[in-house]
Design a protein around this nucleic acid. Structure first.
Lengths: 332, 332
DNA sequence: GTGAAAGCGCTAACAG
DNA sequence: CTGTTAGCGCTTTCAC
């Protein structure tokens, strides 16, 4: 305390609805109605109350409101990793959409830890009107447990009975494989996570089925985690080079790890092999430019928020698919 | 309504403190004290209350608590851009630190928009116990206006009377320039934003003063925004090549834009010019590996949260500097 | 159309 | 050490 006479202004003491009511010469119920049920009041009353309200700088106390109504105007979103460039645009779109509807958004990051994800979900479940689980790592049973507590919408996950928005790479992967076939690829390999995790599973399944479509040999290369380093290591050590093979990587980061690992061994794309990334979310471009899949996560986020706010989450098992597009690049 | 018999469990109706109190055979004030002032109660009373509490699945209502105490256990952080890899680690560290202290963290993104930043700050100021403004874009006057409403800590900004944590690149830039001098650089140029924005200003000032130290020619190259595309365009068009010059880029993204733009013109690092990035936050590595500055944003975030929770923000003009380190790479 | 009064779940004096 | 009581700021019946 008692510092060097700094700008230690006392925090302004809050203006309450009662203050506004008194100043406007009405009861606090009327003041309340002016904001929540203006159609029940005479126009001039509403006007007068609102005028004095923002003249006094009234800011409703959200806690009082939440307590008395039993409702809250916050949503939550849990992502596995804010550092993965896939998520920030999604989160931001969700935040803006929520804001437009008068809701705030809690953003939580699980760090790819299923236990922490569940912990966070339980933590906020009581404080939000709805929860978005983006690419969740927790089990289906746990997702159900959360959904019982709070309206829930999934992004990139499927659990029976819970509405979901899927950001699908399938069509784009098909297009990429088709493109590869034109250029004479000799086979298809998927490089991804081993885990049963929707984004990974969907991409792998697509790669496999497209390989089958063209009767090409298919194989799966296993990564511990879908990180640059793991991919780099894989490409430098385990991965045996198959000339002309199309590598379908889990995402752009993995693709770059593979590219760099292969380059270290003297193999380059597209001469020695071809490779497709996914997400199209890197802040820089690289040489050769990476062929990838562009996914519209912003749209997915908006849909998820709308679902939450329109009550879809309560009841239906709605499923929306947002398809990504193939973005060709020099690596194919 | 009335969908296909899905798992439409009714949201569990909340267990209140009063319920716990009744079940434990105590008054609700005692139950309250068991959680907030256990030292005022007999050990067995505390035990009994807590036991019945989690047996009943009691979860405190944060709105009721906030309303009655007038305090809230949430903090807020506003960043200019969640998509910039600089911020997610910072935000995450802040979130975990806050969580450990029993606080939740609101994360807000201003999208580099000063007006939106101010809007968001005002929006949450009433609902948080403290606010972190990371690399704020708003004016000093506006920062002060916010700080009058809510305890505020700045990261990478300086406003008199408001505590701040600076993540400084100065020492690291000095080391990089020194390294460049060893290798015979012919001059120094800073490539950054024009705006008065602390991270930019600090880096530019360091570059300039280090150039002066070695009596090297210095120039500043102006970017509209510190983005990959703007840097690419600059390097492809405006930037006139000075052999052996060391380019100090605002961040890694700008550095890559410059590298790629220069490459398009046939100039490569480190042969034709040298370049230093900043932040060391890209999820992939590149060839040639970029020399950069590693900044410990996690530590900065932790300090900021501690300041907020220990009341530093109320009064002092504390200033902490977290210095980054030079991470050599093939571009120097 | 508007006001009076009760209450959301919790905490914080004040008694005992 | 523990219970009683009175609110925190807002919404919401119920009257008028």
């Amino acid at each position: 305390m008692g510092g060097s006479g700094g700008a230690r202004a006392p925090r302004a003491t809050a203006v309450t609805l009662a203050d506004v009511a008194k100043a406007a010469g009405v009861s606090s119920s009327t003041a309340s109605r002016a904001f929540n049920y203006p159609h029940l009041l005479r126009e001039d009353t509403v006007g007068r109350v609102k005028a004095t309200a923002d003249q006094l700088g009234f800011r409703p106390n959200r806690h009082a409101k939440a307590l008395s109504t039993g409702r809250t105007s916050a949503l939550g979103v849990i992502v596995p990793d804010l550092s993965n460039p896939f998520f920030p645009p999604l989160v931001h779109a969700a935040q803006v959409t929520a804001e437009d509807r008068g809701y705030s958004l809690y953003i939580l990051s699980s760090e790819h830890n299923a236990a922490r994800e569940l912990y966070l979900a339980n933590l906020v479940s009581r404080d939000v009107a709805g929860l978005i689980l983006a690419s969740p790592r927790m089990s289906q049973a746990h997702v159900r447990q959360i959904a019982e507590q709070v309206p829930t919408v999934l992004i990139n996950a499927q659990v029976k009975g819970i509405p979901t928005v899927l950001v699908s790479a399938a069509q784009a992967i098909a297009a990429a494989v088709a493109d590869g076939v034109q250029r004479g690829i000799s086979g298809v390999a998927y490089v991804g996570n081993e885990e049963r995790w929707w984004p990974n599973t969907e991409r792998e399944t697509s790669a496999r089925s497209e390989a089958a479509t063209y009767s090409l040999p298919y194989r799966r290369l296993r990564l511990g985690e879908p990180t640059y380093d793991d991919a780099l290591t894989l490409a430098r050590t385990t991965l045996d080079h198959q000339p002309g093979e199309l590598l379908v990587a889990f995402d752009d980061i993995v693709a770059h790890g593979v590219l760099d690992g292969m380059r270290a061994r003297g193999y380059n794309a597209p001469e020695d092999f071809r490779i497709l990334g996914c997400d199209d979310a890197l802040p820089i471009s690289t040489a050769p430019t990476l062929a990838t899949v562009h996914l519209d996560t912003r749209t997915a986020a908006r849909i998820a928020v709308h679902h939450l706010l329109s009550g879809v989450a309560t009841d239906s098992a709605e499923r929306v698919v947002v398809s990504g597009t193939y973005r060709p690049g020099e690596t194919i």
